[in-house]
């Protein structure tokens, strides 16, 4: 069986209708097996998409997608912890836990270990897996060698990021608000202005990072089209595409074609470039190099 493709949660604060329409279209058109849904970055945004969740859920299910509800990546106070307890109380849903505090709440029933849990080695993975996890998405910075080691003994299916702006950091401070000289408490939801995040440049004008509310993302766009087949052979069973405000249906098709052996990685990569204009590709983490670099010189170590 070839590897599954999944769509990670939308990290950005898109207008609720755009958010809904984005999923409606994907539900029908994208060759995606699983969708991770929910607000991961900032609890203040939850009320915006909440009214649309039911409709999106049912549309995705009708489209044959497995749906998981993702938790916040950083739970900072009792109010947010309570929100997460409510999320885990959804008995029908399968939760993607991004904080260890949720594990006792979902223990004993199927759940997924999210990429914001620090799973760096076999001991941690098997400890978590024993609590009933049915899958894990590994942290974005893990090198290929670690991925392969984990895959070799993993008691549960493993997924890795394959496309998108990578989540690099999360804070209690809102950088989007700070860039506009605002505080988090009176943020005016300025993060909604940048559909792919706010690009941060160095003082000499080199594009460097992207901020998205409390979250800091890579400026570059991860592209593992050239590596997914080898990772699949090494035992990775799923690849996660992180939504950007681009034609994600077309992005998903390219990854599906490469995984199915219908398209070559190089050709698909040049088509991907047209879909993501102006954002350079990177794959450095996989090679144990700077995450923002694009490696072709280093050997991919999967031993």
């Amino acid at each position: 069986m070839t590897a599954a493709l999944s769509l990670g949660p939308v990290f950005f604060h898109w207008p609720p209708q755009c958010w809904r329409d984005f999923y409606f279209r994907l539900a029908e058109e994208a060759p995606i097996d699983a969708v991770y849904l929910g607000e991961v970055v900032c609890a203040k945004r939850i009320p915006f998409t909440a009214p649309e969740i039911e409709a999106v859920l049912s549309r995705l299910k009708r489209g044959g997608k497995r749906v998981f509800l993702s938790s916040l990546a950083l739970i900072g106070n009792e109010r947010e912890a309570a929100l997460m307890r409510d999320l885990c109380a959804e008995v029908e849903a399968t939760i993607e836990a991004n904080d260890v505090g949720l594990l006792d709440l979902v223990a004993g029933r199927p759940h997924v270990l999210g990429p914001f849990l620090n799973i760096y080695n076999e001991s941690t993975l098997s400890y978590f897996a024993a609590k009933g996890a049915v899958g894990a998405c590994l942290p974005a910075e893990l090198p290929g060698r670690s991925l392969a080691r984990l895959a070799a003994t993993a008691p549960i299916p493993l997924e890795v990021h394959a496309f998108g702006r990578l989540p690099l950091a999360i804070s209690a401070r809102c950088f989007h608000a700070r860039a506009q000289r605002l505080h988090k408490d009176g943020c005016q939801f300025v993060c909604g202005r940048d559909q792919n995040g706010l690009v941060v440049n160095t003082l000499e004008g080199e594009p460097f990072l992207a901020v998205n509310g409390l979250q800091t993302l890579s400026y570059t766009c991860l592209n593992l089209l050239g590596e997914v087949k080898r990772l699949e052979a090494a035992g990775i069973s799923g690849f996660r595409l992180l939504p950007l405000a681009v034609d994600m249906v077309a992005v998903a098709r390219l990854f599906r074609e490469v995984l199915d052996g219908v398209s070559g990685a190089e050709e698909a990569s040049s088509r991907l470039e047209d879909l993501v204009p102006g954002i350079p590709f990177a794959n450095g983490f996989l090679y144990g190099a700077a995450g923002r670099s694009r490696q072709s010189a280093l050997p991919l170590e999967l031993e």
């Binding site: 990578l166 950091a169 800091t216 983490f285 700077a290 995450g291 923002r292």
Partner: peptide, 20 residues
């Protein structure tokens, strides 16, 4: 300023990370 142990900024830029 970031939640510690959940920051890959250094490894994104240099390949060397606090966690690893």
């Amino acid at each position: 300023p970031m939640a510690e142990g959940r920051c890959s900024l250094s490894s994104y830029v240099t390949g060397h990370s606090p966690n690893i």
